[in-house]
Amino acid sequence: MAAPESGDGNNGAARMVTLISSDNTRFEVEAAAASLSQTLQLTILDGGGGGGDGIPLPNVDSATLSKVLEYCIKHAPAAANGGAPNATAVDRAELERFDNEFVNIDQSVLYSLIMAAHNLEIEGLQSLVAKKVADMIKGKSPMEIRRTLGFPDPTPEEQAEMNAHMLEYGWAYE
């Protein structure tokens, strides 16, 4: 893979690190991309993950890690430029297009991605997936939200409780 011109003073090939998913798949990725994870950043700065060693990620399976790294690789160049203040409108539009497409996924994949972004502390990804869930909630009735987010059907007791609570919060439904 061609190293992006990150301009961070590295000469020659970009440093690579290896990450190992919970199901023992090894992923080799540029250190700059993996460092979008606050959790991994210190280990990588300390020289971890290189050579034959890999960094084990016992909470992230290979399908999810592959998706997470797709995000990191795409966003690493902009992050290296300090949020890319001199990025062109075209670059920004391209990242936005990527992000929108990226979260257009099955709900169980989205769930795994949310948990991985949280565990790995990848701020941009955490916000992206949280916004996606917020968009799934926005403007919907409680029953529509329950269906969208995969709540089990309410028992009659729960339904009565919901109705009572809606009355109590009448001011939020005017």
Partner: peptide, 9 residues
């Protein structure tokens, strides 16, 4: 929208 989630469960 945020307040209304209080009735979800």
């Amino acid at each position: 929208d945020a307040v209304r989630t209080c009735v979800l469960a």
